[in-house]
């Protein structure tokens, strides 16, 4: 039986292409399951999973929790808006306290890049990174690619532009790694202040003209501007940002071809995309959300099967 090459999901950069295909094939199966009248399988009745969210999250947390429950795992939720360090307890101590209650797997969102990698070296549990600072958000990238595959048949050879705040985005980085691994071409587009200076060295194209970018691509993944991560204003006003990097129906209709619009959510309607774009048939935003559950079920299932060995 195929298995993942890793014991944790810390980032896309630690996976290989076979891992991604395995996750997608497993997700295909689970997508069928969650559309049955009885949406649940008993696969992980013997597994306990702790969801540790050290940063606010709505959809990722719900998606993981639902994925775990659909697999019949026992689920433990822990949320803290501030990092454990600020409370005086180290992250390792916090997690080890939880693990001592016999937990097998940790799904963690954390504000600091590399927190999952750090944890994986110091605690005895399988770690799933649900977003660590501006580093990676691997399950988001997996569900994004899965959704492209579902809509366009394949990811290889497709042109994907990621638009917006690339500098503060873990979604952008994980997407770049995932798309490249599967043979897609990637472009980033946004104001120069929000594009990392050396990102071209990852082999991605850089474009500051949104119209050119959209005309180039098959898929546009529109990111939210992460005001909460900014230490200075990287652009003068939301209005001016939208003038240059917002997608509206008029722009979409004026393109040479019909492109797919994605968004990892939450959407700021009227900023990065207008409502008529978000709700159009070109947008697959809600498909992404549904696929998120299936992809996360696949990831958890595959990692759990390694624990069981």
């Amino acid at each position: 039986m195929s298995e993942l090459s890793v014991n944790h999901l810390l980032g896309i950069k630690y996976l290989n292409e076979k891992d991604i295909q395995l996750i997608f094939e497993t997700a295909d199966h689970f997508k069928e399951v969650i559309n049955r009248p009885i949406k649940k399988v008993p696969s992980l009745r013997d597994i306990t999973i702790a969801n540790l969210f050290f940063e606010n999250s709505t959809r990722t947390k719900l998606s993981f929790e639902l994925a775990e429950k659909r697999l019949s795992a026992d689920v433990l939720n822990f949320s803290s808006a501030q990092s454990s360090v600020k409370k005086g307890e180290t992250l390792i101590d916090t997690v080890n306290n939880i693990l001592s209650m016999k937990v097998d797997m940790v799904v963690m969102r954390h504000p600091n890049p590399g927190a999952g990698v750090f944890l994986s070296k110091h605690v005895n549990a399988s770690i799933v990174n649900a977003g660590d600072g501006a580093h990676e958000h691997p399950t988001q990238a997996l569900l994004d690619s899965y959704s492209i595959r579902e809509r366009l048949g394949d990811v290889a050879g497709k042109k994907v532009v990621i638009v917006g705040d690339i500098l503060h985005s873990r979604v952008a980085l994980s997407n770049i790694f995932a798309l490249q691994l599967q043979g897609a071409e990637v472009m980033v587009c946004g104001p120069k202040t929000l594009i990392p200076r050396y990102i071209h060295e990852l082999g991605v194209k850089v474009e500051t003209d949104l119209r050119k970018a959209l005309n180039w691509c098959d898929v546009a993944n529109m990111l939210r501007v992460q005001n909460e991560r900014m230490d200075i204003s990287y652009f003068p006003s939301t209005r001016e940002y939208t003038q240059q990097f917002g997608v509206n129906k008029e722009l979409l209709n004026s393109l040479d071809k019909e492109i797919i619009i994605m968004h990892p959510g939450p959407i700021n309607r009227g900023v990065e995309i207008t409502s008529d774009v978000a709700d159009s048939k070109q947008a697959i935003i809600l498909d992404q959300v549904q696929n998120g559950v299936a992809v996360r079920m696949a990831v958890i299932y595959l990692l759990a099967s390694k624990i069981k060995q």
Binding site: K13, P113, A134, H135, Y198, E201, L202
Partner: peptide
């Protein structure tokens, strides 16, 4: 600040 900081998502 360079390609490694970009890959790691750490501020440069």
């Amino acid at each position: 600040e360079h390609i490694i900081s970009t890959k790691l998502g750490l501020k440069g």
